[in-house]
Simulated scan of single mutants.
Amino acid sequence: MILSRRRFAASLGGALGLGLAGAGAGRAAKTVRLSFQRSSTLLTVLKTNGTLETRLGAAGSGVSWHQFTKVIEPMNTGAVDLHADVADAVPIFTQSARAPLTFYAMEAGSPRADAIVVPAESEIRSIADLKGRTVGVSKGSGCHFILAAALKREGLSFADIRPAYLEAPDGAAAFGRGSLDAWVIWDPFLAIVQAKRPVRVLADAGGLSSYNRYYTVNDSFAAAHPEIVATVFSALVEAGRWVKANPKEAVALLAPLWGDLPPEVVATVNERRSYAVKPVDRAALAEQQSIADTFLEAGLIPRRLDATDVRIWQPPAGRG
């Protein structure tokens, strides 16, 4: 593990200086609060290696980390400064709640990283067969949209199934004991269940969503500390490149942090995710509109949204 961390640090080269460029643009924050969730691979890499502690510490800022399972509430309330990366559907709910959030990075699509699964022995063979069945899904997640869109494609809606709104760990337990007919879930939970038992994939996000991930920061923090946002953005870009360029080292680092998962499970997760972090392109947010419209039709948000009407931070020249 020490070796892999040293390789990670070495691979960043002179990034410390790059990450702190422009650090005089604003007063250093006393403590930068970051949240993450289990699927936040790149933030987990940075946390484990102390990358942000080193870079931001050199500019006079401390770092505190906060892990959440339910991410919408802390995003809406501004409980931290920079929020866990989230799948494409989550910002629809935060935008609907008028949360003061700025998009500062996006991770290119990984449509195979979430799926609708049933036990291999199930008689359910298609999305249409879900009618009248109990389907587990995390409310407000990217998987929530995948389920809604997959049902709509078959002429069905949430009214045609029995949705069981469960956070991922609870969904895993319910699926394992047979309380769910189907489960809609993302990696690493998807890879875990596929490794534990034979399952059938009814559909993944392919053809329904690119399954992009977005990184957000509180508006006030982005305005007051753009140099910190730039440092975090650069670190995320580098961490994504490192994971893809060093698959064995990345597996060795992440497996213990994900509950000592078998290396092949972690490798599957990393293979399915793009980890390609880039600046947010407003035009690319057009896909968000279909998610917003689907959720409005399903009664999940109270009003129509222009999903592209969000605040976007752009990195200084040379950072993207």
Results as ranks from 00 to 15, higher is better:
S179N: 07
G171D: 07
K139G: 12
E121W: 10
V117M: 04
D129W: 09
R133N: 06
W186E: 11
A168C: 03
V184I: 15
V135Y: 04
A159N: 13
I127Y: 07
A149W: 07
G132H: 14
E121T: 14
K139E: 13
H144N: 14
A149P: 10
R153N: 13
A115H: 06
A168P: 03
D160H: 05
I185F: 09
C143S: 15
A148G: 02
G132M: 12
V184C: 13
I161P: 04
W186C: 10
S141P: 10
W186M: 11
P163A: 07
D170V: 00
D160R: 03
D160A: 06
K139A: 15
R162Y: 01
I185E: 08
A113T: 09
F189S: 10
D187E: 12
A115S: 15
E121C: 00
G155F: 05
E123C: 01
I127N: 04
S138I: 00
A168N: 09
P188D: 06
D129L: 09
A120T: 03
R153E: 14
I185G: 05
R125E: 12
I185Q: 07
R177Y: 08
I161N: 03
L156N: 09
A173L: 13
R162G: 05
V135L: 02
I116P: 01
Y165W: 14
P119R: 10
F189Q: 10
A173E: 14
E123M: 05
A182K: 04
F189M: 11
R112G: 08
C143H: 05
A172F: 12
I124Y: 06
L130W: 03
A120G: 00
A172T: 12
A191Q: 14
E123R: 13
L147H: 07
A182N: 00
F189K: 03
K131Q: 15
E123I: 02
A128E: 10
E123G: 13
S141Q: 11
P119L: 06
G142N: 11
A150V: 09
I116G: 08
D160N: 10
D129S: 11
V118G: 04
C143N: 11
S122F: 04
I185Y: 06
L156M: 15
G176T: 11
G140I: 12
G178E: 02
K139I: 06
S126Q: 05
P163F: 08
L190S: 11
A173K: 15
I116A: 06
P119S: 02
L151Q: 09
P169I: 07
W186L: 11
G140H: 13
D187V: 05
F145W: 06
F158T: 09
F175D: 08
V137S: 07
W183N: 08
K131T: 15
L166Y: 04
K139Q: 13
E123A: 14
L190G: 14
A128V: 01
A150R: 13
S179P: 00
G140A: 12
I116L: 15
P119T: 04
H144Q: 13
E154I: 02
G155L: 04
L166R: 03
A113V: 08
A113E: 02
S157F: 01
G136V: 03
V135A: 04
V137G: 01
